[in-house]
């Protein structure tokens, strides 16, 4: 008989339950098993009704984010063996601060809308014809935004952000970092449009730099840094538009590249 580990999984059925409960399963403890392997084992062999999201198993798709012992984690990159030893079960819960649809599945439409609102794509004043070739970029220009482009929308940063939990209108870490990813891109000309959304109170000013979003990010994006940097940019723009009203809107952030 192989060694086992207890996994305590949050269960919630909207048809049956008024609030989540937890269910305990004993699964084999393999050295190379991650929390997601345990969940799949439970679903395959023990309880087919367990519901959770997953896809790539390699930290790319960003769909298996959950709370493991109270910390936001990608379950495909969180080893069971790290929680073995003290005899207490591994607690697996849905991502914090999001409404729960069923078991470990959360509702993320709010984030999808916010993401879209910051226009995370290249915006050009006038598009070049395809025949004119690519928009060229130097390695230094790439370096400015590359870090922010690593985001996989796994939403661990939202589950780590008390400001989002307290005030769900806050645009939140990933969406702001992704806005910054395009703002800092030398090919992009949409910083002014994005500022309309970001410089709102719900955009960036609600952030108090708790900094946990950056700590939990599995891709080493620094959303907290992105937000503070953007505060500085927005402040400079605000003073510029106050001192030189005629220049407002033209220069917005383009000089930052």
């Amino acid at each position: 008989m192989a060694e086992t580990i207890s996994v305590e999984v949050a269960r919630y059925s909207p048809e049956r339950d008024t609030e989540p409960s937890s269910q305990r399963y004993d699964v084999p403890l393999h050295k190379d098993w991650v929390v997601l392997d345990a969940l799949n084992y439970i679903k395959d062999k023990m309880d087919g009704s367990l519901t959770f999201r997953w896809s790539c198993r390699m930290g790319i798709c960003g769909s298996c984010g959950m709370m493991v012992n109270g910390e936001p984690k990608l379950t495909c990159a969180t080893f069971l063996s790290d929680y073995a030893g003290d005899g207490s079960p591994v607690r697996v819960q849905p991502l914090r601060y999001f409404p729960v649809i069923r078991d470990l599945v959360v509702e993320i439409t709010d984030f999808m809308n916010k993401l879209q609102s910051v226009k995370p794509w290249l915006i050009r004043g006038d598009e070049k014809a395809v025949s004119e070739g690519e928009y060229l970029q130097t390695p230094e220009q790439l370096d400015r935004y590359k870090q922010f482009s690593m985001c996989i929308n796994c939403l661990l940063c939202y589950a780590a952000c008390p400001v989002y939990g307290l005030d769900p209108v806050f645009i939140g870490p990933a969406a702001i970092a992704l806005a910054q990813r395009y703002n800092m891109d030398s090919r992009d000309e949409g910083a002014g449009e994005r500022m309309d959304v970001l410089a709102q109170h719900e955009g960036i000013w609600g952030c108090t730099f708790v900094g946990e979003c950056t700590k939990v990010c599995p891709k080493h994006v620094d959303p907290a840094g992105a937000i503070q940097q953007y505060k500085l940019t927005a402040t400079i723009e605000r003073f510029k538009s106050f001192l030189m009203p005629w220049a407002a809107g033209n220069s917005e952030m383009e000089s930052a590249k």
């Binding site: 002014g192 709102q200 109170h201 000013w205 505060k231 402040t235 723009e237 003073f239």
Partner: peptide
């Protein structure tokens, strides 16, 4: 620019 917020000024201070 959309409505001008005072938040940047307070943040600068």
């Amino acid at each position: 620019m959309a409505k001008q917020s005072n938040e940047p000024i307070l943040w600068a201070l």
